[in-house]
Simulated assay, not measured.
Amino acid sequence: HEGKWLTEPEKLLKQTKRFWDAGWNLHTHVNGDKGLDVVLGITEKLAPRNGQDIVMEHLGYSTEAQNRRIGEMGLYVSAQPNYIRILGDTYAKTGLGPDRAAQMNRLGSLERKGVPLGLHSDFNMAPIDPLYLAWVASNRITLDGNAKAPKERLSLDKALRAVTIEAAQVIGLDAMVGSIATGKKADFTVLDKDPYVVGAAKLRDVKVQGVLFEGRWFPAK
């Protein structure tokens, strides 16, 4: 519960600067608030450059103050919402304690701060199922059926954006995919129900009927 890192801060600073100065986008795996303090401190030392993005990957536990820094710094987040679903009750008993465990995945906080946000499955740690991820993020219900920190739920619209256009932003492909617009690939998914009609509570029940990918129709099996 005290937090450990795989890369010592001084080494991480050198690695980060090396890739940043070479023109790369940065995606940093960080799960705890102590580690996030280190990553944000390093990020603040980087010279701003046009066309380079910085993404916090996973972001299992962060404080409200850290989320505010993320928003003010213009960073992106690629979140794994299954932390609250899979680990919310377990970490309440062992590790983080009930208060902090309930606050994992502060995605509602990030939404209120206007942070571009994508949701990922971290396969094979969780199923590759975007609508399920959106359901978890917008409901925050644990495996035992307990609702955790409802103020940290994503809105339905933000949850859907986080598996479409904002997910594309996070990986730097929003000029090509993520929404239907002139000049983009006409890739899209056909669902059996309108998510905006069924609502957040039933997102995981929406079925994919098929996808149109690069001009070809692929029905769901």
Rank of each mutant, 00 (worst) to 15 (best):
I54Q: 06
K45S: 15
E57P: 04
M73W: 06
N25F: 07
H29Q: 12
H29I: 15
K45E: 11
R69G: 03
N50R: 07
D37W: 02
L36Q: 12
D37Y: 00
L36I: 14
R68M: 08
N31W: 10
R18H: 03
T28W: 00
L75V: 08
H29K: 07
L46A: 05
M73R: 04
D33N: 12
R69N: 07
F19R: 04
L40P: 08
L26N: 00
Y76N: 03
A22V: 14
R49A: 09
H29N: 11
L26D: 02
D33S: 11
R68E: 14
I54S: 08
N31V: 15
R18T: 13
R68P: 03
I42N: 00
A65M: 13
K17W: 06
Q52H: 11
Q66Y: 03
N50Q: 12
L40S: 09
E44C: 11
E57Q: 07
G23T: 13
E64C: 06
L26C: 10
Q66F: 00
V55H: 01
N67P: 01
H27C: 04
L26K: 04
Y76A: 04
D53W: 02
A65Y: 09
Q66S: 03
R49Q: 10
N50P: 09
E64Y: 08
L75Y: 08
Y76F: 14
G32M: 13
R69W: 03
G60R: 01
N67H: 01
I42C: 02
T43Y: 14
T28M: 08
G23D: 01
T28L: 09
L36F: 07
D53G: 06
I70M: 09
E72H: 04
L46R: 02
M73V: 06
W24L: 15
Y76I: 06
D21C: 06
H27M: 15
G74K: 00
I70Y: 00
G35R: 03
G51R: 04
L46S: 05
H58W: 07
G60D: 06
E57D: 10
E64P: 09
A65K: 10
G74W: 04
A47K: 14
F19C: 07
D21V: 13
L26E: 12
V39D: 01
A22E: 05
D21G: 06
G32E: 14
I70V: 15
G23V: 15
K45C: 05
H27E: 11
T63E: 11
E57L: 10
S62N: 03
T63G: 15
G23S: 00
I54D: 04
L26P: 00
